[in-house]
Amino acid sequence: MINGIPLYWYLIVSAALFCIGLYGVMARKNVIAVIMGVELMLNAVNINLIAFWRYITPTSISGITFAAFIFVVAAAEAAVGLALIISIYRNTRSVDPEKIDSMKL
């Protein structure tokens, strides 16, 4: 326990953020909101990594390093995802994920 905060509080906040982000990914009617949900989920993962690093292995710095890698992956994902959205919008004039079904069998 650090400063009176048990580890599981961080885990619960992180799990709540992850669930809300997952709902956003699956239920929103706008592709940009879907990508925002993905960002929220990656953020929740980062909270978990740093909380476990701080409470369980504070002498090794690997948890922080993994979190830094996740930052990079999130940035790349946002850039490519938004480029895809711009490209799709140019072709279909829509940002509704229901209408983007040209790869459906």
Partner: peptide, 28 residues
């Protein structure tokens, strides 16, 4: 993150996430 004693990641979170990525989102 600051409370978890990770100040470097807190700054990265502000500058990269809340700065760069969200500016990209708002721009799009």
């Amino acid at each position: 993150y600051l409370m978890l004693n990770a100040p470097f990641l807190a700054i990265i979170q502000i500058s990269v996430y809340a700065g760069a990525i969200m500016v990209l989102f708002l721009f799009v």
